[in-house]
């Protein structure tokens, strides 16, 4: 291990080191050498394989017009799968899914952030009970929603679309609250206090200091909330009552048939793309760190 490096210079008056995000280049200090390097490459390859392997059938089947056993690879490549996916209403379902997930993210993220802010400062009475309550939706098996909740929503005359959003927001809140709470645990109140001391109004402090500082955490929370809406099947089906045909609904009904592998594969792969684009944006959301020289 060598400490000789140019990337960290101790004499430079850095008030607050720039925060790092996944995807930043590793600094030479924490870079491994020799055997450790080989080990790291091997383990990286194994973990990459672990995550990539289940995508293999989707990729192969997406372009397979015909692939009978025991041929090792598709016998006839083509776009039949894409055609069938579009014919089954995949395009509109894609838009529905996108809209629903965005609405869930836009509602659940601020709610989670506000709750996390209050809870992390310890001013809330019954804080522990509330923490448990906000975490509890993850314990609720989805079929409990099928069994009971829907009767309640229907009896209360909640419109199906509102019901779906309500339930999905509740399911997303544990994720956003937890993720924001972890961010606030590492958050330095000094910036807010300094701004207020210097005469900034609380609104100005919120918009110019607070929000920019927690922006990356907000983006990650929004991503988790987006995923809750994006991958839900049962709640959209049952509470939505056929008013909202989202991508998972089309995928599930296609997958329940025979010989639909290629259209299911096309639909499934297309379902991976929007969250990935979103994640790309998040990786670019940097702390707009007031202490950082730009």
């Amino acid at each position: 291990m060598s400490a000789g490096t140019t990337s960290v210079s101790l004499d430079k008056p850095v008030v607050h080191p720039p925060r790092r995000m996944p995807g930043d280049h590793g600094s030479p200090l924490t870079q491994s050498r020799g055997v450790a390097r080989v080990l790291r490459i091997v383990s990286t390859a194994l973990i990459a394989l672990w995550f990539a392997l289940p995508f293999l059938p989707l990729v192969l089947w997406s372009f397979a017009n015909q692939w009978m056993h025991p041929a090792a690879f598709p016998m006839e490549a083509g776009t039949d799968g894409l055609t069938a996916a579009i014919a089954n209403g995949g395009g509109l379902a894609f838009l529905h899914s996108l809209l629903l997930s965005l609405v869930v993210a836009v509602i659940a993220t601020p709610l989670g952030a506000m709750a996390a802010r209050a809870l992390s400062r310890g001013h809330v009475r019954f804080g522990k009970a509330i923490t448990v309550l906000l975490f509890s939706p993850v314990l609720l098996p989805p079929f409990a929603a099928v069994l009971g909740l829907n009767v309640l929503l229907l009896r209360a005359w909640v419109p199906p679309a509102v019901g779906v959003v309500l339930v999905l927001v509740a399911v997303a809140i544990p994720y956003t609250t937890f993720s924001m709470r972890a961010a606030y645990a590492a958050y330095d109140d000094g910036f807010d206090d300094a701004a207020r001391t210097l005469g900034a109004s609380s609104r100005l402090t919120l918009w110019r200091i607070h929000l920019p500082l927690i922006a990356p955490a907000l983006a990650r929370s929004a991503f988790l909330a987006f995923l809750v809406g994006w991958s839900d099947y049962l709640i959209t089906l049952v509470v939505g009552g056929g008013h909202m045909i989202t991508l998972p609904l089309i995928i599930a009904s296609s997958a329940s048939g025979v010989g639909n592998e290629s259209s299911v594969a096309v639909l499934s792969l297309s379902a991976v793309i929007p969250p990935l684009i979103l994640l790309g944006f998040i990786a670019r959301t940097r702390n707009l760190d007031p202490g950082k020289q730009r």
């Binding site: 990286t44 990459a48 990539a52 995508f55 991958s231 099947y233 499934s268």
Partner: peptide
């Protein structure tokens, strides 16, 4: 977190896996 190119590939692949609905995961 190590942040090198291998980490980026693993990051992208694992993120892709998170987005797959369980139903699709099971089929796949």
């Amino acid at each position: 977190i190590s942040g090198n190119w291998g980490g980026r590939i693993v990051g992208a692949l694992s993120a892709a896996a998170v987005t797959v609905p369980h139903l699709v995961g099971a089929a796949s």
